[in-house]
Structures are given as structure tokens and as C-alpha cells.
């Protein structure tokens, strides 16, 4: 058993496609648990999942009317994430956050910094960023530089576990 630990680490790769609060929680729970189990964890954020990594403060400087409109209605940032169900104009999300706190569950912000401290790699997808007009500085400091599908598949093909959330 100890041999398998000292040799190359097992890999866990997670595609985070969704920007829903509940799905983000599931992704970060598994990422931090994987890292705790000695796995080498990569989270690849694409499409709506990029909202999780966007900075909460400041504007997003994107080019063109359509991209500016998109980033206005889809601002993102951890404090703007909603539940996939029962959002009820924010009431459901507010209640869920209360319940999470009640059982001492970390918030998404806490999960992100925990994951970073544990060596989880959080990578935004470059193509989604190009399409949505997101510059690298739209993301919080925990995010690594933008990368592509080949990088993800390179990690995924070496992974024991790959998830799409």
C-alpha cells in the first residue's frame, strides 16, 4: 500500500461545466476530498462553470456589444451563484446558505482557498473565455492560466477518476 503512495500520485480530473451553487459545492467537496486522499486534482472550468472563478469585485472588460451584454447578465463570482432548483428569486439560495452554515459546511469561497492550499489546480478553459470575452484578469488569484481541451484530456487520460459536473 505504501508503495503506491510513494510512487506517482493517482489523479482526479473534474470538468466544472455548471455555474450552479449546488453543483459547485459537489465539485469542491470531491476535489478537496480527493486531495486529502493523496490524489493529484485538476478542476477544469468551462462555460457557466467559469462564473465560479470570476472575481466578485470590479467590472469585466470585454470587447464588443454582445460580450459586454453577456457579462452584464452573466456577471458571475461566488457571491452571485444560484441554486439549480428552488432559487425562488434568491430566497432558496439564501436559505441553503443558512443551512450550510448551520452544519459548519464551508462556503464556496472557503472551499476555493482550501482547495488551493491543498494543491488542487483550478484551470479556466481558454475557448470559453475567448467566446465569452473573458480576459485572464477576470478571474480570482487562485485560478491558473487559461488552457485548452488538450491539456484537460492530457490530464484526464492519466486520471483514475474523471467527472463532469
Amino acid at each position: 500500500m505504501a508503495d503506491s503512495v510513494s510512487e506517482e500520485k493517482e489523479k482526479l480530473t473534474i470538468v466544472v461545466f455548471s455555474g450552479d451553487l449546488d453543483r459547485a459545492l459537489a465539485a469542491f467537496m470531491l476535489a478537496t476530498t480527493g486531495a486529502s486522499m493523496g490524489m493529484d486534482v485538476t478542476m477544469f472550468f468551462t462555460f457557466w462553470g467559469l462564473n465560479i472563478l470570476k472575481k466578485n469585485e470590479g467590472g469585466i472588460k470585454s470587447q464588443g456589444l454582445m460580450r459586454r451584454m453577456l457579462n452584464f447578465v452573466n456577471r458571475g463570482g461566488t457571491k452571485r451563484l444560484k441554486m439549480s432548483k428552488f432559487n425562488m428569486f434568491g430566497l432558496g439560495t439564501w436559505m441553503m446558505k443558512r443551512l450550510m452554515k448551520e452544519i459548519n459546511m464551508p462556503s464556496i469561497d472557503e472551499f476555493i482557498s482550501m482547495a488551493q492550499q491543498m494543491g488542487v489546480k483550478m484551470v479556466p478553459c481558454s475557448t470559453s473565455c475567448g467566446m465569452m470575452g473573458l480576459p485572464e484578469d477576470a478571474f480570482r488569484e487562485e485560478a491558473l492560466s487559461l488552457t485548452g481541451a488538450a491539456f484537460f484530456l492530457g490530464e484526464a487520460r492519466e486520471s483514475k477518476v474523471t467527472l463532469f459536473i
Binding site: M29, L30, T32, T33, S36, M37, I103, N104, M105, P106, M114, M118
Partner: peptide, 9 residues
């Protein structure tokens, strides 16, 4: 008072 995954983490 802690739930999964916190005890493991």
C-alpha cells in the same frame, strides 16, 4: 458537528 468532507480534510 462537522460533516463530510471536513473530517477527512
Amino acid at each position: 458537528g462537522l460533516y463530510c468532507p471536513m473530517p477527512i480534510v
